[in-house]
């Protein structure tokens, strides 16, 4: 096979390289620099080695926030992914229903995150909010600002409401790309509804699901605005997730060194999980092709 190589094309990549350098690589390098120093102001800073890393790694509040974060992210994925697939399978395939459901599904995605937090903060209130008021009318003692469990459920439901649409839209796009011939072949073979889903629809949705799961993982692992507006991390620290804990250190206490060390650990966790997930799924895809 004669492969034509034209290295001039690399010049076209240069602008992207510069944008990424300015927006990601240089800030990341700065964070690394901050993580090994005690910084009072730009002129007054002292090298402290790995002290901040040791301090952050031994911090009980960080361990608690990490556990909460993992539980939250796993719950989000376990609810949103199956629900998103289920909704996508029930959507109409032609007619006016397609555009109507697309618009309805896209609505939560268009709302700014802090507004979503505010909507649910008011909606969940027992005195003036429709949701909170109705739940209390049913005899359930619900108050997300006092009961940690209620706060958790509210944050979870809010996230499901906000982001399931994304999974639905991605899966729907994947489903639409399946040619009718596949379904006709399945019909001739007398395949069951489950077999069609398992052997035609699910494999065809795989690549969009990978993107969907990765996006939802990263987003929910870095969630900040919505719980901050809704519960402020409370009651107590019941809904304080990693990024909010980070902001408390960096902005609240202005401990830039520990915050930078913590950011790097946070970054490494996300990098590892995304890489493992991506590799596993892509290898599974390759095996299936073979």
């Amino acid at each position: 096979m004669n492969k034509i190589t034209n290295n001039k094309a690399w010049f076209l990549v240069l602008p992207v390289f510069f944008i990424v350098a300015i927006s990601a690589i240089i800030p990341l390098m700065t964070v690394v620099n901050y993580s090994v120093q005690d910084i009072f102001d730009p002129q007054t800073r002292f090298f402290v080695g790995t002290e901040w890393f040791e301090q952050v790694l031994a911090d009980r509040r960080l361990h608690d926030a990490l556990v909460r974060q993992i539980v939250f992210t796993l719950s989000v994925l376990f609810i949103e992914i199956p629900l998103g697939i289920a909704v996508a399978l029930t959507l109409p395939r032609k007619g006016w229903g397609v555009s109507a459901s697309m618009v309805l599904l896209a609505l939560p995605l268009l709302i700014p995150w802090n507004v979503v937090g505010t909507i649910w903060q008011i909606f969940g209130r027992a005195d003036i909010g429709l949701g909170g008021y109705v739940i209390n009318l049913m005899g359930i003692d619900y108050n997300y600002s006092q009961n940690p469990m209620d706060a958790w459920v509210t944050v979870l439901v809010m996230d499901v409401w906000h982001w399931t649409s994304l999974i639905v839209l991605l899966c729907y796009a994947g489903l639409r790309s399946i040619p009718d011939a596949y379904y006709q072949a399945a019909k001739i073979d007398g395949a069951s509804r489950w077999a069609i889903f398992r052997f035609i629809q699910l494999p065809k949705m795989q690549s969009v699901l990978v993107i969907g799961v990765l996006l939802r993982f990263m987003d929910s692992f870095m969630i900040y605005t919505e719980p901050f507006v809704l519960t402020g991390g409370g009651p107590g620290t019941a809904t304080t997730f990693l990024s909010q804990f980070l902001v408390t250190i960096a902005v609240g206490q202005f401990d830039l060194g520990p915050a930078a060390a913590f950011s790097l650990i946070y970054f490494l966790i996300i990098l590892l999980v995304c890489w493992v997930f991506y590799t596993v799924v892509m290898n599974a895809g390759k095996r299936e092709e073979q």
Binding site: I26, M29, T30, V32, N33, Y34, V36, Q37, I39, P42, R45, F47, G49
Partner: peptide, 15 residues
């Protein structure tokens, strides 16, 4: 580059 708060150790690491 002062704003990036370089130290010899991190400079060596990135190099």
């Amino acid at each position: 580059m002062t704003w990036m708060a370089w130290t010899p150790v991190t400079a060596a690491f990135f190099s």
